[in-house]
């Protein structure tokens, strides 16, 4: 009997296991293996990692990716922090509407998003023309196709996601706490500094790590905006495996492993904090 159940379980799990091994595990292992090979694929070496981390070109790409992820996450976080708090103070109907709407716009990323921003702020975009009519030539100080432009677009796709992730956390702050704090003579600012933000802190850090990973892995938005011109880690990986010039899959693999490790790091922090958060609640 027991043996029959085991056999049945194996057969039932087989298709899933095969697909996961074939399309997730094997490719990841092959990629890690590849990253330790020399450019001709014959000998094992750390050459690719050394190139990735020391060559000014590629290390700049890594630093740029880290920077834009940090900036866009911080700015997106601050906006979402204020907005989602304001949402909780609205009537239930508006709350539901805003959350549904954030959910919808969180799908707005990649190619469509880049395109929408070109319509708004591109060379003959709506705002570019509007400002020109008002006598201010925006393109003198700001270009959508520059770094500040890219940060702006990244912030846009971070905000709805951050609202969706932060909004539920505010329900952890009970009305009674505010009342008790006020009765004990705490000011609004004191309440937020001493009670509100510490209670929200795990959610804030957790959301931040998701936003950070989200920006680190983004490719399509930047690619659609200016092709391979930005020196970002994902863009570099893309050109190394399918570039216009010769492809270098080994170096691409090493950069991909570095990116994967950064994503894992962000997720690990998130997981640790969420677990702590839950224990605190119990």
């Amino acid at each position: 009997m027991h043996r029959k159940v085991t056999l049945f379980a194996i057969i039932a799990l087989l298709p899933f296991a095969l697909l996961v091994v074939g399309f997730l595990m094997l490719p990841l292992i092959a990629m890690i293996h590849d990253s330790f090979l020399s450019a001709d694929g014959r000998t094992y070496t750390l050459e690719q990692y050394i190139t990735a981390l020391t060559s000014p070109y590629y290390s700049k790409g890594i630093v740029n990716s880290l920077k834009i992820s940090l900036y866009s996450s911080v700015i997106g976080m601050i906006i979402a922090f204020v907005v989602s708090y304001s949402i909780t103070r609205m009537p239930k109907k508006i709350q539901n509407f805003m959350i549904t709407f954030s959910n919808l716009t969180s799908n707005f990323s990649g190619v469509p998003l880049a395109f929408a921003f070109i319509i708004l702020l591109g060379n003959s975009g709506l705002f570019t023309l509007l400002f020109k009519e008002w006598g201010w030539n925006m393109t003198d100080t700001f270009s959508l196709y520059s770094w500040s432009g890219l940060v702006l677009v990244y912030v846009y796709f971070q905000v709805p996601l951050a609202i969706l992730l932060l909004y539920p956390a505010y329900s952890g702050i009970h009305k009674q706490w505010r009342e008790s704090a006020a009765l004990l003579g705490a000011s609004n600012l004191q309440f937020w500094l001493r009670i509100g933000i510490p209670v929200l802190l795990p959610s804030i850090v957790g959301t931040f790590s998701i936003l950070f990973a989200n920006a680190m892995g983004a490719y399509a938005t930047a690619y659609a905006l200016v092709g391979s011109n930005y020196n970002l880690l994902t863009i570099r990986i893309g050109s190394l495996i399918a570039g216009d010039v010769a492809t270098q899959p080994q170096l691409g693999s090493a950069l991909a492993v570095i990116l994967g490790l950064m994503m894992l790091g962000a997720m690990w922090i998130n997981e640790r904090l969420m677990r702590r958060f839950r224990r605190d609640l119990q």
């Binding site: 490719p27 990841l28 990629m31 991909a256």
Partner: peptide, 8 residues
């Protein structure tokens, strides 16, 4: 991320 999955 998509790019990494594509590499492998």
């Amino acid at each position: 991320p998509g790019v990494v999955a594509a590499v492998g």
